[in-house]
Design a protein around this nucleic acid. Structure first.
Length: 588
DNA sequence: GCCGTTTTCGGCCCGACTGTTTTCAGTCG
Protein backbone atom coordinates (compact mmCIF):
# COMPACT_ATOMS: atom_id res chain seq x y z
CA UNK A 1 0.00 0.00 0.00
CA UNK A 2 1.59 3.29 -1.05
CA UNK A 3 2.27 5.86 1.63
CA UNK A 4 0.05 8.98 1.56
CA UNK A 5 1.99 12.04 0.48
CA UNK A 6 2.91 14.47 3.25
CA UNK A 7 1.22 17.84 2.77
CA UNK A 8 3.28 20.96 2.13
CA UNK A 9 2.53 21.98 5.71
CA UNK A 10 3.87 18.70 7.04
CA UNK A 11 7.03 18.97 4.95
CA UNK A 12 7.52 22.56 6.10
CA UNK A 13 7.06 21.52 9.72
CA UNK A 14 9.66 18.77 9.30
CA UNK A 15 12.18 21.22 7.80
CA UNK A 16 11.45 23.73 10.54
CA UNK A 17 12.00 21.08 13.20
CA UNK A 18 15.25 20.04 11.58
CA UNK A 19 16.36 23.68 11.61
CA UNK A 20 15.56 23.87 15.33
CA UNK A 21 17.54 20.70 15.99
CA UNK A 22 20.55 21.88 14.01
CA UNK A 23 20.41 25.13 15.93
CA UNK A 24 20.55 23.24 19.23
CA UNK A 25 23.38 21.22 17.77
CA UNK A 26 25.35 24.42 17.32
CA UNK A 27 25.17 24.74 13.54
CA UNK A 28 26.10 28.14 12.12
CA UNK A 29 23.16 30.48 12.00
CA UNK A 30 23.08 30.64 8.19
CA UNK A 31 22.53 26.94 7.91
CA UNK A 32 19.63 27.17 10.36
CA UNK A 33 18.19 30.11 8.45
CA UNK A 34 18.45 28.10 5.25
CA UNK A 35 16.12 25.46 6.76
CA UNK A 36 13.65 28.10 7.91
CA UNK A 37 13.71 29.84 4.57
CA UNK A 38 13.12 26.54 2.78
CA UNK A 39 10.27 25.74 5.18
CA UNK A 40 8.58 29.03 4.29
CA UNK A 41 9.07 28.33 0.61
CA UNK A 42 7.50 24.88 0.93
CA UNK A 43 4.60 26.18 3.00
CA UNK A 44 3.80 28.82 0.39
CA UNK A 45 4.26 26.57 -2.64
CA UNK A 46 1.03 26.40 -4.65
CA UNK A 47 1.66 22.85 -5.86
CA UNK A 48 2.31 19.57 -4.07
CA UNK A 49 5.94 19.63 -2.96
CA UNK A 50 5.87 15.85 -2.46
CA UNK A 51 5.00 15.57 -6.13
CA UNK A 52 7.75 18.04 -7.04
CA UNK A 53 10.23 15.98 -5.02
CA UNK A 54 9.41 12.82 -6.93
CA UNK A 55 9.89 14.70 -10.18
CA UNK A 56 13.24 16.00 -8.91
CA UNK A 57 12.03 19.58 -9.16
CA UNK A 58 12.08 20.87 -5.57
CA UNK A 59 15.15 22.98 -6.32
CA UNK A 60 12.84 25.21 -8.36
CA UNK A 61 11.57 26.49 -5.02
CA UNK A 62 13.57 29.47 -3.73
CA UNK A 63 15.93 28.46 -0.94
CA UNK A 64 15.86 24.74 -1.76
CA UNK A 65 19.09 23.23 -3.07
CA UNK A 66 20.40 19.74 -3.68
CA UNK A 67 20.79 18.84 0.02
CA UNK A 68 17.30 19.87 1.00
CA UNK A 69 15.88 18.15 -2.05
CA UNK A 70 17.39 14.87 -0.80
CA UNK A 71 15.93 15.43 2.66
CA UNK A 72 12.46 16.21 1.32
CA UNK A 73 12.60 13.18 -0.94
CA UNK A 74 13.57 10.96 2.01
CA UNK A 75 10.57 12.32 3.92
CA UNK A 76 8.24 11.62 1.00
CA UNK A 77 9.63 8.13 0.34
CA UNK A 78 10.18 6.84 3.86
CA UNK A 79 8.17 9.14 6.12
CA UNK A 80 11.20 10.50 7.95
CA UNK A 81 14.52 12.29 7.51
CA UNK A 82 17.53 10.32 8.85
CA UNK A 83 19.33 13.45 10.10
CA UNK A 84 16.29 14.40 12.17
CA UNK A 85 16.10 10.93 13.70
CA UNK A 86 19.72 11.18 14.77
CA UNK A 87 19.34 14.62 16.32
CA UNK A 88 16.10 13.68 18.06
CA UNK A 89 18.04 10.96 19.84
CA UNK A 90 20.55 13.56 20.95
CA UNK A 91 18.20 16.29 22.20
CA UNK A 92 15.00 15.67 24.16
CA UNK A 93 11.90 17.18 22.52
CA UNK A 94 11.33 19.56 25.43
CA UNK A 95 14.45 21.53 24.51
CA UNK A 96 12.86 23.07 21.45
CA UNK A 97 10.00 24.38 23.61
CA UNK A 98 12.61 26.01 25.86
CA UNK A 99 14.19 27.83 22.91
CA UNK A 100 10.79 29.40 22.19
CA UNK A 101 10.69 31.12 25.59
CA UNK A 102 11.36 34.84 25.65
CA UNK A 103 14.97 35.51 26.52
CA UNK A 104 16.07 31.95 25.82
CA UNK A 105 17.56 30.71 22.62
CA UNK A 106 19.40 27.62 21.46
CA UNK A 107 22.67 28.50 23.17
CA UNK A 108 21.21 28.92 26.63
CA UNK A 109 18.82 25.98 26.21
CA UNK A 110 21.72 23.73 25.38
CA UNK A 111 23.83 25.17 28.18
CA UNK A 112 21.08 24.45 30.70
CA UNK A 113 20.62 20.95 29.32
CA UNK A 114 24.29 20.12 29.57
CA UNK A 115 24.99 21.78 32.92
CA UNK A 116 21.77 21.03 34.79
CA UNK A 117 20.04 18.33 32.76
CA UNK A 118 17.10 20.68 32.09
CA UNK A 119 15.14 18.96 29.30
CA UNK A 120 11.61 20.39 29.53
CA UNK A 121 9.67 23.49 30.57
CA UNK A 122 8.75 21.72 33.83
CA UNK A 123 12.39 20.90 34.59
CA UNK A 124 13.30 24.50 33.80
CA UNK A 125 10.72 25.84 36.24
CA UNK A 126 11.88 23.48 38.98
CA UNK A 127 15.52 24.47 38.46
CA UNK A 128 14.70 28.19 38.42
CA UNK A 129 12.60 27.96 41.57
CA UNK A 130 15.44 26.10 43.31
CA UNK A 131 17.83 28.92 42.22
CA UNK A 132 19.99 26.48 40.35
CA UNK A 133 20.10 28.52 37.09
CA UNK A 134 22.33 31.16 38.73
CA UNK A 135 24.95 28.51 39.47
CA UNK A 136 25.71 28.26 35.76
CA UNK A 137 28.60 30.43 34.63
CA UNK A 138 27.38 33.39 32.58
CA UNK A 139 23.89 33.35 34.08
CA UNK A 140 22.72 35.23 37.15
CA UNK A 141 19.82 35.96 39.44
CA UNK A 142 18.24 38.43 37.00
CA UNK A 143 18.25 35.79 34.30
CA UNK A 144 16.54 33.37 36.66
CA UNK A 145 13.79 35.90 37.38
CA UNK A 146 13.41 36.52 33.67
CA UNK A 147 12.93 32.81 33.01
CA UNK A 148 10.19 32.54 35.64
CA UNK A 149 8.49 35.63 34.19
CA UNK A 150 8.65 34.13 30.68
CA UNK A 151 7.16 30.87 31.93
CA UNK A 152 4.34 32.79 33.61
CA UNK A 153 3.64 34.76 30.42
CA UNK A 154 3.59 31.58 28.38
CA UNK A 155 1.04 30.06 30.74
CA UNK A 156 -1.10 33.18 30.59
CA UNK A 157 -1.07 33.35 26.80
CA UNK A 158 -1.99 29.65 26.60
CA UNK A 159 -4.89 30.52 28.88
CA UNK A 160 -6.01 33.39 26.71
CA UNK A 161 -5.82 31.40 23.48
CA UNK A 162 -4.64 32.66 20.10
CA UNK A 163 -2.61 35.83 20.60
CA UNK A 164 -2.85 37.13 17.03
CA UNK A 165 -5.33 39.89 16.26
CA UNK A 166 -7.31 40.06 13.01
CA UNK A 167 -6.41 43.04 10.86
CA UNK A 168 -9.61 45.13 11.24
CA UNK A 169 -9.51 45.16 15.03
CA UNK A 170 -5.78 45.81 15.08
CA UNK A 171 -6.07 48.70 12.61
CA UNK A 172 -8.89 50.23 14.59
CA UNK A 173 -6.79 50.20 17.76
CA UNK A 174 -3.72 51.47 15.89
CA UNK A 175 -5.62 54.37 14.38
CA UNK A 176 -7.14 55.30 17.75
CA UNK A 177 -3.69 55.28 19.35
CA UNK A 178 -2.18 57.26 16.48
CA UNK A 179 -4.90 59.91 16.79
CA UNK A 180 -4.32 60.18 20.53
CA UNK A 181 -0.57 60.52 20.08
CA UNK A 182 -0.93 63.18 17.40
CA UNK A 183 -3.07 65.23 19.78
CA UNK A 184 -0.49 64.87 22.54
CA UNK A 185 2.52 65.40 20.29
CA UNK A 186 1.49 68.81 19.01
CA UNK A 187 2.52 70.67 15.90
CA UNK A 188 4.35 68.70 13.22
CA UNK A 189 3.92 65.31 14.89
CA UNK A 190 3.20 62.45 12.54
CA UNK A 191 2.14 58.98 13.71
CA UNK A 192 1.76 56.15 11.20
CA UNK A 193 0.79 52.50 11.78
CA UNK A 194 3.62 50.33 10.41
CA UNK A 195 4.61 46.64 10.57
CA UNK A 196 2.29 43.91 9.40
CA UNK A 197 -0.63 46.31 9.86
CA UNK A 198 0.68 48.48 7.07
CA UNK A 199 1.35 45.42 4.95
CA UNK A 200 -2.35 44.52 5.45
CA UNK A 201 -1.56 41.02 6.71
CA UNK A 202 -4.40 38.67 7.72
CA UNK A 203 -3.60 39.09 11.39
CA UNK A 204 -0.94 40.80 13.46
CA UNK A 205 1.06 39.92 16.55
CA UNK A 206 1.51 43.46 17.82
CA UNK A 207 0.74 47.07 16.95
CA UNK A 208 3.73 48.89 15.44
CA UNK A 209 3.57 52.66 15.30
CA UNK A 210 6.16 54.98 13.75
CA UNK A 211 6.26 58.62 14.82
CA UNK A 212 8.32 61.67 14.00
CA UNK A 213 8.27 64.69 16.26
CA UNK A 214 10.50 67.42 17.59
CA UNK A 215 9.66 66.38 21.16
CA UNK A 216 10.39 62.64 21.31
CA UNK A 217 10.58 62.21 25.08
CA UNK A 218 7.23 63.92 25.61
CA UNK A 219 5.60 61.82 22.93
CA UNK A 220 7.00 58.56 24.34
CA UNK A 221 5.66 59.42 27.78
CA UNK A 222 2.25 60.35 26.44
CA UNK A 223 1.65 56.81 25.14
CA UNK A 224 1.03 55.66 28.72
CA UNK A 225 -1.60 58.35 29.21
CA UNK A 226 -3.86 57.12 26.43
CA UNK A 227 -7.01 55.47 27.81
CA UNK A 228 -6.51 52.35 25.65
CA UNK A 229 -3.15 51.59 27.29
CA UNK A 230 -3.01 49.36 30.35
CA UNK A 231 0.69 49.59 31.19
CA UNK A 232 3.93 50.92 29.73
CA UNK A 233 7.08 48.82 29.72
CA UNK A 234 9.93 51.05 28.66
CA UNK A 235 9.75 54.63 27.45
CA UNK A 236 12.72 56.68 26.23
CA UNK A 237 13.30 59.18 23.47
CA UNK A 238 13.68 56.42 20.88
CA UNK A 239 10.22 55.09 21.62
CA UNK A 240 8.05 53.16 24.03
CA UNK A 241 6.59 49.72 24.47
CA UNK A 242 3.26 49.13 26.10
CA UNK A 243 0.35 46.75 26.46
CA UNK A 244 -3.21 47.79 25.62
CA UNK A 245 -6.25 46.83 27.69
CA UNK A 246 -7.14 44.40 24.90
CA UNK A 247 -3.87 42.57 25.64
CA UNK A 248 -2.25 43.75 22.41
CA UNK A 249 1.43 44.66 22.58
CA UNK A 250 2.15 48.16 21.27
CA UNK A 251 5.54 49.23 19.96
CA UNK A 252 6.07 52.93 19.29
CA UNK A 253 9.27 54.06 17.55
CA UNK A 254 10.16 57.73 17.37
CA UNK A 255 12.59 59.45 15.06
CA UNK A 256 13.50 62.71 13.40
CA UNK A 257 11.34 63.95 10.51
CA UNK A 258 14.34 63.85 8.18
CA UNK A 259 14.52 60.07 8.73
CA UNK A 260 10.82 59.31 8.33
CA UNK A 261 11.41 57.37 5.11
CA UNK A 262 14.09 55.17 6.65
CA UNK A 263 12.13 54.66 9.85
CA UNK A 264 8.95 53.75 8.02
CA UNK A 265 10.76 51.41 5.65
CA UNK A 266 12.52 49.68 8.51
CA UNK A 267 9.48 49.22 10.74
CA UNK A 268 7.10 48.25 7.97
CA UNK A 269 9.22 45.17 7.27
CA UNK A 270 8.70 42.37 6.79
CA UNK A 271 11.80 41.14 8.56
CA UNK A 272 12.56 38.91 5.61
CA UNK A 273 12.02 41.69 3.10
CA UNK A 274 14.41 43.92 5.03
CA UNK A 275 17.06 41.23 5.38
CA UNK A 276 16.95 40.49 1.65
CA UNK A 277 16.90 44.20 0.83
CA UNK A 278 20.00 44.80 2.93
CA UNK A 279 21.89 41.84 1.52
CA UNK A 280 21.20 43.16 -1.93
CA UNK A 281 22.28 46.66 -0.88
CA UNK A 282 25.56 45.38 0.60
CA UNK A 283 26.50 44.00 -2.81
CA UNK A 284 26.30 47.58 -4.04
CA UNK A 285 28.32 48.94 -1.14
CA UNK A 286 25.30 50.33 0.70
CA UNK A 287 24.22 49.61 4.27
CA UNK A 288 20.56 50.12 5.14
CA UNK A 289 19.26 50.83 8.63
CA UNK A 290 16.43 52.75 10.27
CA UNK A 291 18.70 55.79 10.43
CA UNK A 292 19.62 56.03 6.78
CA UNK A 293 21.74 54.49 4.07
CA UNK A 294 25.50 54.32 4.58
CA UNK A 295 27.51 54.49 1.36
CA UNK A 296 30.91 52.73 1.47
CA UNK A 297 32.10 55.09 -1.28
CA UNK A 298 32.15 58.12 1.00
CA UNK A 299 31.44 56.74 4.48
CA UNK A 300 28.45 59.03 4.84
CA UNK A 301 24.97 58.07 6.03
CA UNK A 302 22.18 59.72 4.13
CA UNK A 303 18.71 60.09 5.66
CA UNK A 304 15.54 60.06 3.57
CA UNK A 305 12.34 61.82 4.47
CA UNK A 306 10.25 59.67 2.15
CA UNK A 307 10.13 55.94 1.65
CA UNK A 308 10.13 56.41 -2.11
CA UNK A 309 13.59 58.00 -1.81
CA UNK A 310 14.84 54.98 0.14
CA UNK A 311 13.81 52.55 -2.60
CA UNK A 312 15.04 54.88 -5.33
CA UNK A 313 18.46 55.18 -3.65
CA UNK A 314 18.70 51.38 -3.71
CA UNK A 315 17.90 51.28 -7.41
CA UNK A 316 14.49 49.71 -6.81
CA UNK A 317 11.01 50.69 -7.92
CA UNK A 318 8.77 51.84 -5.08
CA UNK A 319 7.34 48.67 -3.57
CA UNK A 320 3.95 49.05 -1.93
CA UNK A 321 3.91 47.70 1.66
CA UNK A 322 1.66 44.79 0.64
CA UNK A 323 4.45 43.49 -1.63
CA UNK A 324 7.12 43.39 1.06
CA UNK A 325 7.09 39.73 2.03
CA UNK A 326 10.27 38.52 0.32
CA UNK A 327 8.29 36.79 -2.39
CA UNK A 328 10.40 37.96 -5.30
CA UNK A 329 9.56 41.69 -5.13
CA UNK A 330 13.24 42.67 -4.97
CA UNK A 331 13.78 41.22 -8.44
CA UNK A 332 11.23 43.58 -9.95
CA UNK A 333 12.47 46.12 -12.45
CA UNK A 334 9.13 47.85 -12.45
CA UNK A 335 6.49 47.81 -9.73
CA UNK A 336 3.34 45.92 -10.72
CA UNK A 337 0.08 47.84 -10.97
CA UNK A 338 -2.00 46.78 -7.98
CA UNK A 339 -5.78 46.75 -7.90
CA UNK A 340 -7.39 49.49 -5.79
CA UNK A 341 -10.77 49.85 -4.13
CA UNK A 342 -11.65 52.50 -6.71
CA UNK A 343 -11.22 49.97 -9.54
CA UNK A 344 -14.08 47.84 -8.24
CA UNK A 345 -17.30 48.38 -10.21
CA UNK A 346 -19.56 45.94 -8.42
CA UNK A 347 -20.01 43.28 -5.77
CA UNK A 348 -21.03 39.80 -6.88
CA UNK A 349 -21.71 38.01 -3.60
CA UNK A 350 -24.22 39.42 -1.10
CA UNK A 351 -27.02 38.22 1.14
CA UNK A 352 -30.39 39.62 2.18
CA UNK A 353 -33.15 38.70 4.61
CA UNK A 354 -34.22 36.04 2.11
CA UNK A 355 -31.54 33.83 3.72
CA UNK A 356 -29.24 34.78 6.59
CA UNK A 357 -28.68 38.46 5.78
CA UNK A 358 -30.03 41.38 7.79
CA UNK A 359 -30.88 43.95 5.09
CA UNK A 360 -33.47 44.04 2.32
CA UNK A 361 -32.77 43.96 -1.41
CA UNK A 362 -33.55 47.68 -1.64
CA UNK A 363 -31.30 48.55 1.29
CA UNK A 364 -28.41 46.57 -0.16
CA UNK A 365 -28.94 48.10 -3.60
CA UNK A 366 -29.00 51.66 -2.30
CA UNK A 367 -25.91 51.10 -0.13
CA UNK A 368 -24.02 49.52 -3.04
CA UNK A 369 -24.95 52.46 -5.26
CA UNK A 370 -23.69 54.85 -2.58
CA UNK A 371 -20.38 53.02 -2.70
CA UNK A 372 -20.20 53.92 -6.37
CA UNK A 373 -20.90 50.43 -7.69
CA UNK A 374 -22.49 49.87 -11.08
CA UNK A 375 -23.85 46.43 -10.20
CA UNK A 376 -24.69 44.13 -7.30
CA UNK A 377 -25.49 40.43 -7.37
CA UNK A 378 -28.00 39.24 -4.75
CA UNK A 379 -26.80 35.74 -3.91
CA UNK A 380 -28.69 34.31 -0.98
CA UNK A 381 -28.02 30.78 0.22
CA UNK A 382 -29.62 27.82 -1.54
CA UNK A 383 -32.03 24.93 -0.95
CA UNK A 384 -29.93 22.78 1.39
CA UNK A 385 -28.27 25.50 3.42
CA UNK A 386 -30.08 24.74 6.68
CA UNK A 387 -29.74 26.82 9.84
CA UNK A 388 -33.31 27.94 9.08
CA UNK A 389 -31.99 29.97 6.17
CA UNK A 390 -32.50 27.64 3.25
CA UNK A 391 -34.14 29.08 0.15
CA UNK A 392 -36.42 26.53 -1.55
CA UNK A 393 -36.72 26.53 -5.35
CA UNK A 394 -40.14 28.17 -5.01
CA UNK A 395 -38.74 30.84 -2.72
CA UNK A 396 -35.87 31.45 -5.13
CA UNK A 397 -38.36 32.05 -7.97
CA UNK A 398 -40.08 34.65 -5.80
CA UNK A 399 -36.71 36.18 -4.92
CA UNK A 400 -35.77 36.43 -8.61
CA UNK A 401 -38.96 38.40 -9.22
CA UNK A 402 -38.28 40.66 -6.26
CA UNK A 403 -34.77 41.42 -7.46
CA UNK A 404 -36.05 42.17 -10.95
CA UNK A 405 -38.71 44.49 -9.52
CA UNK A 406 -36.17 46.26 -7.34
CA UNK A 407 -33.89 46.62 -10.34
CA UNK A 408 -36.69 48.27 -12.27
CA UNK A 409 -37.56 50.69 -9.49
CA UNK A 410 -34.06 51.65 -8.28
CA UNK A 411 -31.99 53.83 -10.61
CA UNK A 412 -28.24 53.98 -10.92
CA UNK A 413 -27.35 50.36 -10.22
CA UNK A 414 -27.95 47.04 -11.94
CA UNK A 415 -29.14 44.23 -9.69
CA UNK A 416 -28.38 40.66 -10.72
CA UNK A 417 -30.64 37.92 -9.38
CA UNK A 418 -28.29 35.20 -8.20
CA UNK A 419 -27.60 32.55 -5.63
CA UNK A 420 -24.80 31.15 -3.52
CA UNK A 421 -25.42 27.51 -4.32
CA UNK A 422 -24.14 24.68 -2.17
CA UNK A 423 -21.71 22.25 -3.77
CA UNK A 424 -22.93 18.89 -2.49
CA UNK A 425 -20.41 16.17 -1.53
CA UNK A 426 -20.78 14.51 -4.95
CA UNK A 427 -20.00 17.78 -6.73
CA UNK A 428 -23.58 18.45 -7.85
CA UNK A 429 -25.47 21.63 -6.99
CA UNK A 430 -28.65 21.87 -4.95
CA UNK A 431 -30.88 23.54 -7.54
CA UNK A 432 -31.92 22.10 -10.91
CA UNK A 433 -30.16 23.48 -13.97
CA UNK A 434 -33.46 24.89 -15.27
CA UNK A 435 -33.71 27.11 -12.20
CA UNK A 436 -30.02 28.07 -12.24
CA UNK A 437 -30.43 29.10 -15.86
CA UNK A 438 -32.93 31.76 -14.76
CA UNK A 439 -30.29 33.46 -12.61
CA UNK A 440 -27.87 36.12 -13.79
CA UNK A 441 -25.11 35.13 -11.36
CA UNK A 442 -24.23 31.88 -9.60
CA UNK A 443 -21.62 31.54 -6.87
CA UNK A 444 -20.99 27.93 -5.86
CA UNK A 445 -19.55 27.20 -2.42
CA UNK A 446 -18.78 24.32 -0.08
CA UNK A 447 -20.60 24.66 3.25
CA UNK A 448 -20.80 21.01 4.37
CA UNK A 449 -18.69 17.84 4.59
CA UNK A 450 -15.35 19.58 5.04
CA UNK A 451 -13.52 16.45 6.16
CA UNK A 452 -13.31 14.72 2.79
CA UNK A 453 -10.08 13.32 1.39
CA UNK A 454 -8.03 15.61 -0.82
CA UNK A 455 -8.89 13.59 -3.90
CA UNK A 456 -12.63 13.54 -3.21
CA UNK A 457 -12.75 17.23 -2.30
CA UNK A 458 -10.77 18.16 -5.40
CA UNK A 459 -13.12 16.16 -7.63
CA UNK A 460 -16.09 17.77 -5.89
CA UNK A 461 -14.69 21.25 -6.48
CA UNK A 462 -13.72 20.62 -10.10
CA UNK A 463 -17.20 19.29 -10.86
CA UNK A 464 -18.63 22.61 -9.69
CA UNK A 465 -16.02 24.58 -11.65
CA UNK A 466 -16.92 22.64 -14.79
CA UNK A 467 -20.66 23.17 -14.32
CA UNK A 468 -21.63 25.46 -17.19
CA UNK A 469 -23.92 27.65 -15.08
CA UNK A 470 -21.45 28.38 -12.29
CA UNK A 471 -19.87 31.83 -12.58
CA UNK A 472 -17.63 31.77 -9.53
CA UNK A 473 -16.48 29.57 -6.66
CA UNK A 474 -17.05 31.23 -3.26
CA UNK A 475 -14.36 31.15 -0.53
CA UNK A 476 -12.58 28.32 -2.36
CA UNK A 477 -10.59 26.78 0.51
CA UNK A 478 -13.00 27.26 3.42
CA UNK A 479 -10.35 28.53 5.79
CA UNK A 480 -11.15 30.83 8.70
CA UNK A 481 -8.17 32.85 9.83
CA UNK A 482 -6.83 31.72 13.21
CA UNK A 483 -9.86 29.43 13.56
CA UNK A 484 -10.20 26.77 10.91
CA UNK A 485 -7.72 25.21 8.50
CA UNK A 486 -8.61 25.00 4.81
CA UNK A 487 -10.12 21.73 3.68
CA UNK A 488 -7.86 19.34 1.76
CA UNK A 489 -7.68 20.43 -1.86
CA UNK A 490 -5.20 19.96 -4.72
CA UNK A 491 -5.09 23.61 -5.64
CA UNK A 492 -3.01 23.17 -8.78
CA UNK A 493 -5.75 20.97 -10.25
CA UNK A 494 -8.43 23.43 -9.11
CA UNK A 495 -6.58 26.33 -10.75
CA UNK A 496 -6.13 24.38 -13.96
CA UNK A 497 -9.86 23.69 -14.13
CA UNK A 498 -10.79 27.30 -13.38
CA UNK A 499 -8.37 28.62 -15.98
CA UNK A 500 -9.64 26.13 -18.57
CA UNK A 501 -13.35 26.86 -18.04
CA UNK A 502 -13.16 30.58 -17.28
CA UNK A 503 -14.91 30.03 -13.94
CA UNK A 504 -13.91 32.77 -11.51
CA UNK A 505 -12.31 32.01 -8.17
CA UNK A 506 -13.29 34.31 -5.36
CA UNK A 507 -11.18 36.34 -3.04
CA UNK A 508 -13.77 36.47 -0.30
CA UNK A 509 -13.28 39.76 1.53
CA UNK A 510 -14.79 38.79 4.85
CA UNK A 511 -11.88 39.61 7.21
CA UNK A 512 -12.32 36.25 8.96
CA UNK A 513 -11.83 34.46 5.65
CA UNK A 514 -9.77 36.36 3.05
CA UNK A 515 -10.11 33.26 0.90
CA UNK A 516 -8.36 32.69 -1.48
CA UNK A 517 -5.42 33.82 0.61
CA UNK A 518 -2.75 36.15 -0.75
CA UNK A 519 -0.39 33.29 -1.61
CA UNK A 520 -3.11 31.17 -3.23
CA UNK A 521 -4.66 34.06 -5.15
CA UNK A 522 -1.26 34.84 -6.61
CA UNK A 523 -0.71 31.24 -7.62
CA UNK A 524 -4.18 31.18 -9.19
CA UNK A 525 -3.51 34.29 -11.24
CA UNK A 526 -0.19 32.86 -12.38
CA UNK A 527 -2.03 29.73 -13.49
CA UNK A 528 -4.24 31.88 -15.70
CA UNK A 529 -7.28 32.11 -13.41
CA UNK A 530 -9.37 35.29 -13.31
CA UNK A 531 -10.42 36.25 -9.79
CA UNK A 532 -13.40 38.11 -8.35
CA UNK A 533 -13.27 40.07 -5.10
CA UNK A 534 -16.55 39.87 -3.16
CA UNK A 535 -17.65 41.27 0.17
CA UNK A 536 -20.02 38.36 0.99
CA UNK A 537 -21.95 41.11 2.82
CA UNK A 538 -24.78 40.01 5.11
CA UNK A 539 -25.91 43.58 5.86
CA UNK A 540 -25.29 46.99 4.34
CA UNK A 541 -22.41 47.76 6.71
CA UNK A 542 -20.37 44.77 5.63
CA UNK A 543 -20.36 45.81 1.97
CA UNK A 544 -17.37 47.81 3.24
CA UNK A 545 -15.48 44.55 3.83
CA UNK A 546 -14.46 44.85 0.19
CA UNK A 547 -11.33 46.65 1.42
CA UNK A 548 -9.96 43.49 3.06
CA UNK A 549 -10.38 41.61 -0.19
CA UNK A 550 -8.54 44.39 -1.98
CA UNK A 551 -5.79 44.10 0.63
CA UNK A 552 -5.48 40.37 -0.03
CA UNK A 553 -5.50 40.91 -3.79
CA UNK A 554 -2.74 43.49 -3.54
CA UNK A 555 -0.69 41.10 -1.39
CA UNK A 556 -1.25 38.62 -4.23
CA UNK A 557 0.23 41.11 -6.74
CA UNK A 558 -3.12 41.30 -8.57
CA UNK A 559 -3.77 44.16 -10.95
CA UNK A 560 -7.17 45.38 -12.21
CA UNK A 561 -6.84 43.03 -15.18
CA UNK A 562 -6.77 39.98 -12.91
CA UNK A 563 -10.06 40.88 -11.26
CA UNK A 564 -13.36 40.38 -13.08
CA UNK A 565 -15.40 42.90 -11.12
CA UNK A 566 -13.26 45.78 -12.31
CA UNK A 567 -15.06 45.30 -15.64
CA UNK A 568 -18.19 47.18 -16.71
CA UNK A 569 -21.24 44.92 -16.42
CA UNK A 570 -21.63 44.26 -20.15
CA UNK A 571 -18.03 43.11 -20.44
CA UNK A 572 -18.30 41.03 -17.28
CA UNK A 573 -21.37 39.19 -18.55
CA UNK A 574 -19.87 38.97 -22.03
CA UNK A 575 -16.87 36.96 -20.78
CA UNK A 576 -18.97 33.81 -20.77
CA UNK A 577 -22.48 34.49 -22.08
CA UNK A 578 -24.87 32.45 -19.95
CA UNK A 579 -27.26 31.83 -22.82
CA UNK A 580 -24.66 29.81 -24.67
CA UNK A 581 -23.58 27.69 -21.72
CA UNK A 582 -26.09 24.88 -21.54
CA UNK A 583 -25.87 22.16 -24.13
CA UNK A 584 -29.02 21.27 -26.13
CA UNK A 585 -29.73 18.33 -23.83
CA UNK A 586 -29.81 20.37 -20.65
CA UNK A 587 -31.72 23.18 -22.34
CA UNK A 588 -34.40 20.63 -23.44
C1' DG B 1 22.79 25.10 3.37
C1' DC B 2 22.10 28.43 -0.43
C1' DC B 3 23.75 31.11 -4.09
C1' DG B 4 26.11 34.34 -7.92
C1' DT B 5 26.30 42.17 -12.55
C1' DT B 6 32.88 41.20 -7.03
C1' DT B 7 29.95 33.19 -9.46
C1' DT B 8 31.30 27.30 -7.81
C1' DC B 9 33.83 29.27 -2.82
C1' DG B 10 33.21 32.51 0.63
C1' DG B 11 30.32 35.12 1.70
C1' DC B 12 25.47 35.37 3.62
C1' DC B 13 21.51 42.72 7.34
C1' DC B 14 21.32 45.96 11.12
C1' DG B 15 20.88 47.88 15.54
C1' DA B 16 18.97 47.76 20.38
C1' DC B 17 18.67 45.74 24.64
C1' DT B 18 19.92 42.80 28.55
C1' DG B 19 22.71 40.90 31.80
C1' DT B 20 26.82 39.61 32.84
C1' DT B 21 30.84 40.75 31.25
C1' DT B 22 35.81 43.83 32.16
C1' DT B 23 34.91 43.93 26.21
C1' DC B 24 30.87 40.72 24.99
C1' DA B 25 27.44 36.92 23.94
C1' DG B 26 22.86 35.97 23.36
C1' DT B 27 18.42 37.30 22.02
C1' DC B 28 15.05 40.01 19.65
C1' DG B 29 12.56 42.49 16.02
Amino acid sequence: MPRADPSNGQIADALGELGDLYELDGAIVHRVLAYRSAAKSVREAPVSVAQLAREGRTTELPGVGATLHEKILALVDTGSIPAAEKLRAKFPPGLVAITRLQGLGPKRARLLFEELGVDSLEALRTAAEAHRLRTVRGLGARFEEGVLASLARLEESEHLGAPRILLPRALELAETLARGLREQGGEGTQVIPAGSLRRQADSVKDIDLVAVTTRPTTLAKSLGRLPEIERVGTAGKAGARAVAHTGAAVDLRIGHPAQLGNLLQHFTGSGRHNAALRERAVRRGLHVSEYGILDDANGATEAHASERDVYARLGLPFLEPELREDRGELDLVEAPELVELGDIRGDLHSHTIASDGHSTIAEMATAARERGYEYLAITDHSASHGFGNAVSPEQLRVQIERVREANASIDGIELLPGSEVNILPDGSLDYEDELLAELDWVVASVHTSFAMSEQAMTERMIAAIEHPLVDAIGHPTGRKIEQRAPYALALDAVFEAAARTGTLLEVNANPDRRDLSDVNARAAARAGVTLVIDSDAHRIATLANMRWGIATARRAWLGPGDVANTLPLAELLGRRPRGARLGKQARK
